[in-house]
Amino acid sequence: HQQPQKSKILAAVIEEYIRTAEPVGSKAIAASADLGCSSATIRNELAELVAMGYLEQPHTSAGRVPTPLGYRMYVNELMEHKDLTAEETQAITQSLTGRHQRGELMTDASRLASQLTNYPAVTLTTSAGVTIRRFDLIYLDANSFIIVLLLSDDTVKNKLVHLPVSAEQSMIQKLATVFNAHFTGIHESDITPVLIRSAERAAQDNLGITAVIAAFAIEVLTGAGAAQTYLVGESQ
């Protein structure tokens, strides 16, 4: 789990980014969130969150934006949860009872979510069960390598990674071994911060490369097998 201060800063960045759709800087966080720490401390924490794979920094901006890993941490552990009222629970039950066609069910679920939140609602249907069968990490030079993922549905995804620090080829090879041992055959929801930290220790990775590979794996698995998207409430 994140340290409380780091968690608050990550949540503040994500909420500000959702609100503005612009990269978020330390000054904006200090002004909008009651964190009780200096801008310098916030900058240091933001740099650590980038290194851990929860945020990234677009080349053209001094601000940060959330990564898929950051969003997952926010939804699973940081987002404020609100219990449904009895009336809302009854409305959900009545709306979805008797729906047998997937398209009809997804449309009704999206409409109901939009009504309850006053936000547009997107419902995705995906092909269940897609996992990563194999990780290949191709070392190019001290500052770059390619991630190649073979999925269980035989599709292949790859990404060129540029490192801000130098890494030995032996480190990249060790990471490939660790990921093939612990990250194959699992779903994106199983790739937790605890698993990532365990992999970092196993590979003796103190450069943050493990988090980069894990973030790409989550991104790929989240998008794998996407079939249909249902959007309701665009005018909200």
Rank of each mutant, 00 (worst) to 15 (best):
I92Q: 06
R99W: 00
G103W: 06
T107A: 15
D108G: 05
R111C: 00
R111E: 02
T117K: 12
V122L: 15
T125C: 06
T131G: 03
I132V: 12
R133A: 13
Y139K: 11
Y139V: 12
N143P: 10
F145P: 07
I146Q: 09
I147Y: 05
L149N: 06
D153C: 02
K157L: 06
K157M: 08
K157H: 13
K159P: 04
L160Y: 12
V161P: 07
V161R: 07
P164R: 10
S166E: 15
S166H: 12
A167E: 09
Q169L: 11
Q169T: 13
Q169K: 15
S170Q: 14
M171K: 14
I172Y: 10
Q173S: 14
Q173C: 08
A176G: 13
A176V: 08
V178D: 04
V178A: 08
F179T: 10
F179L: 10
N180T: 09
F183H: 01
T184S: 07
H187Y: 02
E188Y: 04
S189W: 05
S189A: 08
I191R: 03
P193N: 03
R197G: 01
R197D: 11
E200R: 13
R201P: 05
Q204M: 14
L207V: 08
G208C: 02
G208K: 02
A211E: 05
A217T: 01
G223W: 00
G223K: 04
G223Y: 00
A224W: 00
A227K: 12
